Simulated assay, not measured.
Amino acid sequence: MATKTSSEIIRDGLWDNNPALVQVLGLCPLLAVTSTVVNAIGLGLATLMVLMGSNLAVSLIRNFVGESVRLPAFVMIIASFVTCAELLMQAYTYELYQILGIFIPLIVTNCAILGRADAFASRNAPGPALLDGAMMGAGFLVVLIILGGMRELIGQGTLFVDMHLLLGPMASDWVIKPFANYPDMLFMVLPPGAFVGLGLLIAMKNGIDHHLKERQKTLQPAATPGSKRVRVTGNVS
């Protein structure tokens, strides 16, 4: 397995192999809790912490775990970090923890986390494994925030509502209301709105990728007429 460079790992996590837009993993919490930005940030940070911690731990023990107990060991490591994230949220952001509810413990079943542990962390050194976890978690977090912002803005006509649940009293007046007397659009707050929003984000990413490929083709230098020489053999009459 060829070792990826740091730039390739960063690009993979944030764009080329984004867990939400390309791998399409972790959709259950992603679609369920992104009705507001603060919910998206809370879940995204918890997932980021678990990804980084589990990737690092799996990489450190990769040479000491047998093939027969490899996956159970990975699941135990992930569950341990999820428990740590859950306890931290209970201690410092209890109201947000109550809102996110069952979706924090369900991070254990997030296929993106187990997939990175098995496909990357178990085959690479701790440094690249930690960077991979950070970038995959950051990519997932960015998609959560964009989707949460889209749904909150279209559904309720606000942005950054209830940010004090995560950042304390200093964020209580961060609410942005771009539209006066905005009629709430319940569709975007409910699960169907989450599917539509995610579909739009995936379509936008695919469109950007297609545009970049077409642009790269047009920028490739065209062959000049004299760049190739044709050798003619035989008699010339």
Rank of each mutant, 00 (worst) to 15 (best):
Y94G: 03
Y94S: 13
L96N: 01
L96Y: 00
Q98M: 12
L100I: 12
L100A: 02
G101D: 12
G101T: 09
G101W: 01
I102G: 01
I104G: 00
P105M: 06
L106E: 03
I107W: 01
I107S: 02
V108P: 00
V108A: 04
T109M: 06
T109A: 15
I113N: 07
L114M: 14
L114I: 15
G115I: 00
R116E: 06
R116L: 02
A117V: 04
A117D: 11
D118P: 00
D118K: 03
A119D: 10
F120I: 10
F120N: 01
A121Q: 04
A121L: 04
R123E: 15
A125E: 14
A125F: 00
P126A: 10
P126C: 03
A129V: 02
D132Y: 02
D132H: 04
D132Q: 05
D132W: 02
G133F: 03
G133C: 01
A134K: 00
A134I: 13
M135K: 01
M136E: 06
G137N: 06
G137C: 05
A138R: 00
A138G: 07
G139T: 06
L141T: 13
L141G: 03
V142P: 01
V142M: 12
I145C: 05
I145G: 01
I146W: 02
L147E: 12
L147C: 06
L147T: 07
G148E: 07
G148W: 05
G149W: 04
G149D: 08
M150L: 15
R151A: 05
R151H: 07
E152P: 08
L153W: 05
L153Y: 05
L153S: 01
I154H: 02
G155Q: 01
Q156T: 12
Q156A: 13
Q156K: 14
Q156I: 05
Q156N: 12
G157C: 06
G157N: 07
T158Q: 12
F160G: 06
F160C: 07
F160N: 11
F160A: 11
V161W: 08
M163Y: 07
M163N: 06
H164F: 06
H164V: 03
L166M: 02
L166C: 00
P169T: 05
P169N: 05
P169V: 08
M170I: 15
M170Y: 11
S172E: 14
S172P: 01
V175H: 03
N181A: 13
N181K: 13
N181P: 07
Y182K: 10
P183V: 09
P183A: 13
P183L: 12
F187M: 11
M188H: 03
L190Q: 14
P191Y: 13
G193N: 07
A194C: 12
A194V: 11
A194I: 11
A194E: 08
G197N: 07
L200D: 04
L201P: 12
I202G: 03
I202W: 09
A203C: 10
N206R: 14
N206V: 09
G207T: 11
I208A: 10
I208C: 09
D209R: 13
D209S: 14
D209F: 07
H210I: 13
H211T: 14
H211I: 14
E214L: 13
R215G: 15
R215F: 11
R215Q: 15
K217H: 10
Q220W: 02
P221W: 04
A222H: 10
A222W: 09
A222C: 08
A223I: 15
A223F: 12
A223T: 14
T224A: 15
T224R: 15
P225G: 03
G226L: 09
G226Q: 12
